[in-house]
């Protein structure tokens, strides 16, 4: 319990520092902070009301306290451009980003784990010699460029897939769930998820391969051989199960990392998720929305770092089961 508690405190601390940084970045940058915060098209009276509501007429530390208080209440202000509460907008975009991230990650990790184990098996072969530089190349390719190629071939070239967006024009659904599980949504999801998956599969693949190679050297694998267990049992039940520990951790970290990293893929495919929201908000000087999107992305990242730590402990009995011996 001490371990979990310690991790939790650390995560809360990091979140607090990130929120503070965010406050400083958005308020202390050159220029009049009120101009950053307040829509220029407002009348003077509206402007004054706004200033008071956000405490912008107060000294900085008071503003900071108000900011923290508002954050805790989930009060992130209103978007300039859309006039709606930031929290509402962000929570609308979040499921779309999560759907994209998760589907890409799952495909990438299933492929990566299997291919990585296979390459560990085939070590020293020609297949390996060709595959490793190829995999490294996918890691080196900008995600948006992979997206552009996919778009050029499958959306514009063959016309098999839509060139962007998350839904066909005029499509309406009864609920968010219905939308996320509709065929139309899947049809729109496929290309961006594929682009992301191509980029993401390299990490689990290389990780799986190198840990497999390491584990195969371990004495308990030799012992499994001495026991006359079948090759399948040795590779799957012993080697792969052990090699999965770091891969599972990487998966959790990957969720956090790619919710933020999706920014470019979402932009290329006009996917209305959090990342694209952040980019358009920043481009349109919609600072409350930009700050809200940034904070949520950071929160997901910190949360997933925490989950990764806990997951590792849970999967590895050496951490989760204390020493009795």
């Amino acid at each position: 319990m001490g371990y979990v508690g310690q991790r939790l405190i650390q995560a809360v601390f990091v979140l607090w520092v990130v929120a503070t940084l965010c406050f400083l970045m958005f308020r202390l940058m050159p220029g009049d902070p009120t101009l950053n915060y307040i829509d220029t098209s407002m009348t003077e009276e509206q402007r004054q009301n706004m200033l008071v509501a956000f405490g912008l007429d107060q000294p900085l530390y008071v503003q900071y306290l108000i900011y923290l208080k508002n954050l805790l209440r989930g009060e992130l202000g209103n978007s300039f451009l859309q006039g709606r509460p930031v929290l509402e907008l962000v929570l609308e975009a979040l499921p779309l980003t999560v759907a994209l991230t998760l589907s890409a990650l799952i495909v990438a990790y299933i492929f990566g784990v299997i291919a990585g184990a296979f390459l560990a098996w085939k070590r020293g072969s020609l297949t390996e010699g060709v595959a490793i530089p190829l995999v490294l190349a996918t890691r080196a390719a900008p995600e948006f460029w992979l997206g552009m190629i996919l778009l050029a071939i499958f959306a514009f070239g063959y016309g098999w897939f839509p060139s962007g967006g998350a839904a066909s024009a005029g499509a309406e659904y009864g609920s968010e769930w219905e939308r996320l599980f509709s065929l139309d949504f899947l049809y729109h999801l496929l290309l961006p998820a594929l682009a992301l998956a191509v980029y993401l599969q390299g990490l689990p693949l290389l990780l799986m391969r190198s840990t497999m190679l390491e584990v195969m050297q371990d004495e308990f694998v030799t012992m499994a051989r001495m026991k006359g267990l079948s090759e399948w049992t040795i590779v799957i039940r012993h080697a792969a199960r052990n090699a999965l520990l770091p891969v599972a951790t990487a998966f959790a970290l990957g969720i956090g990392g790619s919710v933020g990293g999706n920014v470019v893929v979402e932009t290329v495919f006009s996917w209305p998720g959090l990342g694209r929201m952040l980019v358009t908000a920043v481009q349109g000087s919609d600072y409350p929305l930009a700050q809200g999107a940034f904070l949520i992305i950071a929160a997901v990242l910190v949360l997933m770092n925490l989950v990764a730590d806990l997951l590792y402990g849970w999967l590895d009995p050496r951490v989760s089961h204390g020493r009795k011996g």
Partner: peptide
């Protein structure tokens, strides 16, 4: 090391974007 924890809690590209936009 705590500083490192904080930095690892910053989303990479979004941070670059926000910083680029604000400066």
């Amino acid at each position: 090391m705590r500083l490192a924890d904080v930095v690892l809690g910053l989303p990479f590209l979004p941070f670059v974007i926000v910083l680029a936009a604000l400066t």
